[in-house]
Nucleic acid binder design. Structure first.
Lengths: 168, 168
DNA sequence: GTTTACTATTTCGATCATCGAACTATCCGC
DNA sequence: GCGGATAGTTCGATGATCGAAATAGTAAAC
């Protein structure tokens, strides 16, 4: 913990940006490889991750919310859900209230599959992070959070095709 | 085992994994949006990033190396380079030595374009990282590095279709 | 110096994810 | 109920990607 306080070797903004970029490219490749192992595509993997994340928060994911989060057109989202449903990774459910809506639900088998994807990576991460103490983890968490927000903010300035229908 | 000295609020492995995942999904979306702004796709953006990174290291990128790094088939890579070349983001150059090879070179105009993509995000990052001191940056850099390595290691275990033909 | 094997990249036809636009079903205000 | 808005879906077209085969160049064997 007693690192030199000079900061001589402190990574610059540029250094960090490149590291981050390397990580995201590698992550893309990971999703790609994992997907091809299971007959899924990058988008499908991302979609599953988002649906699972929403389920974890207790809010069921809807197709339109998924489309928004993935930056996908409504029709592409329907096709995506069709694909995921065909292989049993998600189920469509019409909630009792508003019957226009569709809630995306992940059946047990899908959860199991999700864990198979998740666990090896999670273990590798846990392994590689073993040397990080509580204070360091807090720093990292803060970093990841603000970086995500920054990216979100910049990306929001460029109206994507599907969301550009909204006036500003 | 939860010590509540200082680690009270320390993010767990799971917390960090989720933060990382959120970031990578957001990054995907960023690439998508930026690309659609410039008539490019996620893959094209990633490819440009890799070509620029290689150029920065002084090693010109070859189509096959690009294919390997992107996890793309050779034919898809040819099409990709065709697209990038058509809009002037890269140039093909046949080096004097081995004339089977093709070196991918980024012309000035392409570099300029790359900067336009890069700068707003870099500025947003720099802004959001203003509060991180040298020691904290060192922690973050180490974290990003080991995480990338961990992902690479796990992903390497799953041979993707194009690379599985070659043992090694 | 010719033949043979290998490597780097490209071409070709097919597949499938995605798009935009039009359509169905449902809800809400009057 | 009627009309507009909202949630999803269907449909035809586009184009990124694939696998397999072709082209061009190099290296090694004899």
């Amino acid at each position: 913990m007693t690192r030199d306080t000079q900061g001589e070797n402190a990574p610059s903004d540029l250094d960090l940006t490149r590291l981050l970029q390397t990580l995201t490219v590698e992550s893309d490749r990971y999703a790609e490889r994992f997907g091809s192992r299971h007959g899924l595509h990058r988008t499908d993997v991302n979609a599953l991750a988002l649906i699972l994340a929403a389920a974890r928060r207790g809010e069921p994911m809807s197709p339109s919310a998924l489309a928004r989060e993935l930056g996908l057109s409504p029709s592409a989202t329907t096709a995506l859900i069709d694909r995921l449903e065909a292989v049993g990774h998600v189920e469509r459910e019409r909630p009792s209230g508003d019957r226009r809506r569709v809630a995306l639900h992940v059946p047990e088998a899908g959860l199991e599959e999700g864990r198979k994807m998740f666990v090896p990576l999670a273990e590798a991460f846990a392994d590689s992070w073993a040397g990080f103490g509580p204070a360091e983890r807090e720093v990292v968490a803060r970093f990841l959070d603000v970086s995500t927000e920054a990216m979100k903010a910049v990306s929001a300035e460029w109206a994507p095709p599907h969301e550009s229908q909204r006036r500003r």
